[in-house]
Design a protein around this nucleic acid. Structure first.
Lengths: 151, 151
DNA sequence: TATTGTTATACTCTATAACTATA
DNA sequence: TATAGTTATAGAGTATAACAATA
């Protein structure tokens, strides 16, 4: 048997840090997400993009990037991939020839619906030790950490 | 003036997801950490390693890896870098010739102390919208998300 | 002049698999 | 047989800087 006693370690300085616990939690949540979505090969980021396009049909890449909090240049490859999988379509914007109006394809809508059910189960899974009230509290607190200037 | 109205976007499906808010919060916190530590070039992960070594002198790389939640193989480069900067020392373990007993150098102890003060200020900074009680609540909730099986 | 999408590039963080030297 | 450290390798995820087309 292996010497499995990391519990005897002192986590003294780390244990009171928000940043540390944020990393551990996110790591656990992302692992569970990937596991839950392994059949559909959708990452957390891709799910966010699909959701936001569905909820805001016709938005362009820059608006999407800002909304989701990643760089414009990074978004290109994300959309490229989703377009290649025929989940997202780039339509030429009628009002601004520089930009694309993004939309889900029928396949994209179908997959999003399927995946959303899995995401719901995944969320229940990771919050299994939390009451509904605690889950809402957690999200509310996370929002206030993420946006120190506002609420 | 630019059309800065992402507030009019719908975040409908994302807004109730723990995973999404976890990512946003972590992103904000890590950015602030890097900014606060830019003079010392210490990443969140490196700070965690230095802290854990200081609090558990003589531990080996595998134990450290498990404690902090990254792979053994990943830890090698982390320790390599800290050793190159003369912050961490690899001592040959007297009891097990396969492993190293890790310790901070004097320079490492000095830097850790200096950086810990900055980390404390950084933590206050990111939790500026939270009371002390709320901060404790947040950490407690994050722990329960990270470790679904225990508390 | 400013913005959209894009490309080129690079850096961080992470994991898996296989090796070596010990245990 | 199993473990500690290591190497090679790869894959996300991210950012910066610069460009062409368009506003």
């Amino acid at each position: 048997m292996k010497n499995n006693s990391p519990n005897s370690l002192s986590f003294e300085p780390l244990d009171k840090l928000i940043g540390y616990h944020l990393r551990r939690a996110q790591s656990a949540v992302f692992s569970d997400f990937r596991l839950a979505m392994s059949d559909d090969q959708i990452t957390p980021g891709q799910y966010g993009v699909l959701s936001l396009i569905e909820a805001n049909k016709g938005l362009n890449q820059t608006t999407l990037s800002k909304a989701i909090g990643i760089e414009r240049s990074t978004m290109v490859a994300v959309i490229d991939l989703l377009e290649k999988r025929n989940l997202v379509a780039r339509h030429k914007s009628p009002t601004d020839k520089r930009s694309y109006a993004l939309d889900l394809t029928n396949a994209g809508k179908k997959l999003l619906k399927k995946v959303t059910d899995k995401v719901d189960r995944h969320e229940k899974n990771i919050s299994t030790n939390l009451t509904e009230t605690e889950t809402k509290t957690l999200i509310s607190l996370l929002k206030r950490v993420a946006a120190p200037e506002a609420d």
